[in-house]
Nucleic acid binder design. Sequence first.
DNA 1: CCTCCATGTGAACGTTGACTAACACGAGAC
DNA 2: GTCTCGTGTTAGTCAACGTTCACATGGAGG
Lengths: 189, 189
Amino acid sequence: MDLIAHAAPTRRRDQILVEAARLFARHGFHGTSIDGIGAAAGVSGPAIYRHFPSKEGLLAEMLVGISEHLLDGARAIVAAHPGAADRLGALIAFQVDFALHRPELITVQDRDLANLPDESRRRVRALQRAYVEIWEDAIGRTGPPRSPEEVRTAAHAAFGLINSTPRSASHTDAAHAGPVLTAMATAAL
Amino acid sequence: MDLIAHAAPTRRRDQILVEAARLFARHGFHGTSIDGIGAAAGVSGPAIYRHFPSKEGLLAEMLVGISEHLLDGARAIVAAHPGAADRLGALIAFQVDFALHRPELITVQDRDLANLPDESRRRVRALQRAYVEIWEDAIGRTGPPRSPEEVRTAAHAAFGLINSTPRSASHTDAAHAGPVLTAMATAAL
DNA sequence: CCTCCATGTGAACGTTGACTAACACGAGAC
DNA sequence: GTCTCGTGTTAGTCAACGTTCACATGGAGG
């Protein structure tokens, strides 16, 4: 989408999103002030409102973007791996890669969902549900037989395992953490 | 400590702590108001200050209490299981039990650490570090050979796996989730 | 050159929320 | 009976913060 020019309206905007993600991850949505986000983006205070309708709107765009990115990735993997065997492995690799490269987004997504306005929250939840269902399907086709509730629990446990990086990775050892997480997730499922 | 009578000064106090934990878990520290905590505890507003010195002080007591409880439990397990073989299993069972029975505390602990005043935060971090070290030691003695960084990553991944309950468990299926989590954690380590 | 639009600024404004102050009231000690 | 202490209440106070307003400025298009 958006094939038309639209030049460079995105530089400052993207910068604001990146800095806001960092601050939300560190201090939480309510613990981060608009002035703080502005300062981090090299702009002061209400300039944010030239790019986003509100603080909640900023968060909404961030979380919807994450959910769409993950779902798109998972759908591409499903299309590329029709066989059940390696599909789960590809999903694991995808999630590990995301968790290692964008830990702030992982943190914000499962911490500040509740601060979204209703409509965006429903949208994000729908996207997340679709993503989880792809995982549940792949888990159901692989490994030991399990009831639907057990599969659901297993899927969330795998996310918890992989998404533990923000709490442990010192950024330097991201390269070392990847294989460990992949191996553990594979063994757990 | 505190062997002297002291009758029942704790009923209202404990109630406040319980309700505050629920609200902090749902809305976050900054998203929860003192009046809201009071209302949930059947008391209105500033009555909180008859029991706690400040909102931060309330959070501090909650998080320090959790960390001490976990560390005490882990130390008891170490004492009761000198052999490396079943020690890790006991640690896993202990953490699974805690995560299933007090999911709000799990949520608050890894979400609102940053909102503690400096001194309490240092104290909680020290307790957490000791707890993690017990796990690292047990992991190092069991399973495949790993470097210290890998052991550290593995420990945090195990916590993430087990602590995923607040995101998945519908409280009714806690009984079903327990065995799944235990099995997955055992397989992952 | 003049206009317009995107982007920025600093100064309000209104609300929320943590915390304090002043007062009430019931129970146990003397 | 009175004093005191623990616990509660309601009415402030004060700072922080999201948001709006009025105004500046600089580049693109006629």
